[in-house]
Amino acid sequence: MAKPKVATTSLAGCFGCHMSLLDIDDRILKLVELVDFDKSPIDDIKEFTGQCAIGLVEGGCANEENVRVLQDFRKHCDILISVGDCATMGGLPALRNTITLEECLNEAYLDGPTVYNPDGVIPNDKEIPLCLDRVYPCNEVVKIDYNLPGCPPSADTLWEALVALLTDKPVSLPYELIKYD
């Protein structure tokens, strides 16, 4: 039987959650025995090659490209997991949600105290994805099956959750893995 496939992506995240996944250290060898990676920055496959068992999403949706990728993940993944606080709640990028997009761009490119931009240009190449009015957590855009809290969730949390799902066991993480204070 072919191994189940896993896909991962980083949307409006910092890649910290992916780093945490790499922190499973040598267990990554076990993981490769259990699964094949499909679309993921880990193997640099850019688009889906087929249906996957599990999709791991880091980061929320800050721009239209994030939305496209997330919706694509929903279509191609049987189980979709929000990994980390950015994906589950918007996280740091969502700090901009209290101001308008225009104010945000002005502050970032024109008015901010550390900005050096003598031409006063706000980048607007047609290749640059358009920003959304605010940052959306993943579950406001598509349905999410599991949320793994943490910034980032620890390697053990990710490992426990993945192994449980792949071996068809209930995901019940011990308190220490989801406690953050």
Partner: peptide
Amino acid sequence: KDGMQPMFDISAALNDAETIADR
């Protein structure tokens, strides 16, 4: 059936950016 959130309105979410970027 499709797993999408029906309350998410992509055109409304892009409105501001389309106006600002003029595309």
